[in-house]
Design a binder for these strands. Sequence first.
RNA 1: GCCGGAGUGGUGGAAUGGUAUACACGAGGGACUUAAAAUCCCUUGCCUUCACGGGCUUACGGGUUCGAGUCCCGUCUCCGGUACCA
Length: 1025
Amino acid sequence: MPAYRPEEIEKKWQAHWKQHSTFKAANHSDKPKYYVLDMFPYPSGAGLHVGHPLGYIASDIVTRYKRLRGFNVLHPMGFDSFGLPAEQYAIQTGQHPALTTEKNIETYVQQLSSLGFSYDWSREVRTSDASYYKWTQWIFLKLFNSWYNLDTNRAEPLTGLTARFAESGSAGIRAAGDDGDRHDFTAGQWSMFSEKQKLAAVLPYRLAYQQDTYVNWCPGLGTVLSNDEVKDGLSERGGFPVERRLMPQWNLRITAYADRLLAGLDQLDWPDAVKEMQRNWIGKSIGAEVTFPVMAGAFPASAGNNPAAAGSNPAETGNNSVEAGSNPASAGNNPAEAGSSSAEAIKVYTTRVDTIYGATFLVLAPEHELVDVITTPEQRTAVDEYIAATKRRSERDRMTDVKAVSGVFTGAYAQNPVNGAPVPIWLADYVLAGYGTGAVMAVPSGDQRDYLFAQHFNLPIPAISDAQQGLDQQADPTKEGHYINSGIINGLTYKEATQKLIAFLEEKGLGKGKVNFRQRDAIFGRQRYWGEPIPIYYKDGTAYGIAESDLPLVLPEIDEYKPTETGEPPLGRAQDWLYKGQYPYELSTMPGWAGSSWYYLRYMDPTNEARFVSEEAEQYWGSVDLYMGGAEHATGHLLYARFWYLFLKDLGLVSSGEPFQKLINQGMILGRSNFVYRVNWVVQTASREAFDQLGTEQIVPVIFASKGRLQTLSDGTPFLYPESEDFLQGIMEAFQAKYPDLTLAYRGITPIHVDVSLVNNDILDTEAFMNWREEYKNARFMWEEDGGNYICGVEIEKMSKSKYNVVNPNILIDKYGADALRLYEMFLGPLEQYKPWNTNGISGVGGFLKKFWRLFHPEDGPLALTDEPATPAELKVLHRAIQKAQEDIEKFSFNTSVSLFMITVNELTALKCHKRAILEPLVLLVSPYAPHLAEELWQELGHEAGSISHASYPEFREEFLVEDVVTYPLAINGKVREQMQFAAAATAAEIETAVLASDFLARHGEGKSAKKVIVVPGRMVNVVI
RNA sequence: GCCGGAGUGGUGGAAUGGUAUACACGAGGGACUUAAAAUCCCUUGCCUUCACGGGCUUACGGGUUCGAGUCCCGUCUCCGGUACCA
């Protein structure tokens, strides 16, 4: 083969690999194992753009490198093939989502194959295949039939729990979850329960449980969404508004694992950013739960509509008062006498129990269950109105409107448990029903939100610490100093006070230390069609798991993919879809993250029909050694997958501690958008008649101004240079001549995205542009003043179809080859960094590949290598390359490896080296990056076809790098002035003597003498004067 | 606000505390060619000088050090995440 022809050799080797299953991995081997995993894609209709393969290329390089280093590597690929877009498309077109999905997967497989990835395709999984989701459903049933025992700190089968119920009732059982949902019973009562009652009693213990839950309901999509599927109050897919709604939902008790998910992060080799995001998401906080008893009876201060209006107005004692008397109890009407304790009590959660003496009011979430009970008749109307108003405000409003203070007084008072002071109870939507107890003790001097609230409603803001400052301006949450106005903790420090208060509250039974998590249980149902059916049926209104032997529960065919007329999920349309012919199935399906939470396990043993993965395969492959994927999955997929893994581990079904040992987030490749600048016109008619006469013809000239014709204001508004406006004058005059009844006026410039394929080096192909859009076919251009080109504007944005900046890898592969594309994507910059795409640079790596080829095929002739022994200079080039290529790949620095290869080839070209002894090892070095080229050359070198994939990496030998002579930079006070050569063996003292003996100082020392000489052996010499 | 990360030529970027700007793109000049493509050679951080050379430069201001793009303190800007979380 003469010249380098990627289009020929790449097809040849891709076919060879496929035919010979070159990359098939065995589940048994004497070699050490290595598992390289890519986050599997959702097969969208748009196919891959150049940004998608970045991570796949990097992981493929590691895979091929590890094979050369003697590992048995598992490197699979599959498809996360359940999902919303296929279903939305199905609703519009009636086409079954399975068909679109199948078609899209075909495109993906074709695109991935054309990049030369070394996947073991025999292990491909698809989450929408019944043979796969059978096991997703099976894991769900395991969750359904398990509970979390806090005494053993792990999940256990439900059978153990019911056995304990039968023996000793519910007493003494500590289970993860909310005890408030459960009821106490004795063994005797349990034995008297009906089956239905037993199941109802067990339900709140299950790890997969059904409960009325506040959900993110998205009317636009007709389904609920998880928190990580909602961005800024809109659905991530489609951008529809999302609202809060109370609905019965399936949940997974991920909160049982919060502590273990948090602790496990410490051992993982993951990016700090991702670990930190997971920590924040789990949101562990250590604090205390404190009980404030509600005061019963008509309370004098509640006579008015607002406590501030009543005679005992606490605010009158001063917003900034530091007197103990700022407590309403000391005001005129002493409520402590009027009210006595009632049966009700409000539990608050606080991380700052030390500030409790500064708690001058309580705030409940509007959804709090006691609101109805405690609201006084006088306040009833105001409270009802406030609750209604809160409901009307969508989640979105609440988020964009954070600063606005709103709230309402309930008329009720509670008693501060540490000093008996009555504190008014308010409602406000800044308190969230879903966190802590849904109630807070407000400490306006220590918390800014409480401060703003107190200020707005004129409530007192007493200081509680001698270190607090600026309370007339804002809250001061300091933990420094000593407490004041604080009863039993006066004079104490933060630590002392916290301990003393918790002890005091625990003794009185009014509080206890408590750990809280921000994380909620994961809502597991979606009211959609294209997902795994939840394997639950209903008998007499009670949920039962279907028998494992009846799995998979196959997704039924339906006529339309929309909700039913009665508002049930699409599965409600399925005809005769009943368990055992009589019991209705659960109609919601699993969320998108169900199938992706365990797919990496299925790859280990993808066709096993008896088990989700065989014990042997699971134990052989263990956990994933390298997981490559996008940072957008930091708190979704990566958390859920860890949760499922810990659960499976509790049941003894998997053997490692964590599923993904090392994680790398490849950075996003951004698009480089091009803009043209259209001149805007306004046409004014003299009369209505003049306008009517025009008809429909296009009369406004379409003019585009080149970038050099524009200036941009600091806010980004573009406008024409005045001299360029003269250009428009002629056009306006010509227009005037043609349409005397009309006037044409210039009204600024609008930048418009232009397809990047019509642009080269920011120069617009104006011919192609005019053919691009019908309305541009008569466009005129204001060229650059000098060159006569049309220069486009540039912006770096996310790649997307609507911005016309998507670059299709297929086109680049056709033009430059897959090896060039692989190299170029790696060459762009550090893997983890966000970086813009610029197709222009690819010619550089294209040139490199040709040069590399010419080392073997001089003048693009036939293979012509000599068997001459290599010179020291050539060996040095080779072994430096071996050393550095290894180092770079081990630290995932692929961009520097590519430039290393370029330097190496440049140097060998300069040395006119065509020696087998040098070039054969070089083929191995390059093979992970440019596998097709390497295969071709390897075969030409006389090796068996395809054998390079399992050859051995060349061995680095230090001795070839040893130099006899080292060139040292000589510096004066850190500034390099000259170079000098020394024998490699020279000692620091010898070098110092030689430098001082030379005329170096005389020439650069400004007549001063050396104070000190620093010699760094092998590095440099610095003379201090 | 809080938590991460990043600021180096016209551009993407390189640099275990030790010669800043490797490698590549782009640009300019030249060779080959009827021409173009392809290929090859030279120049290319800024200022100064006919030249040799000299000075300056890693967002900005300080500091540590014989020596700082790299470490420390402060400021600014950009990107990502997250938030009435009590």
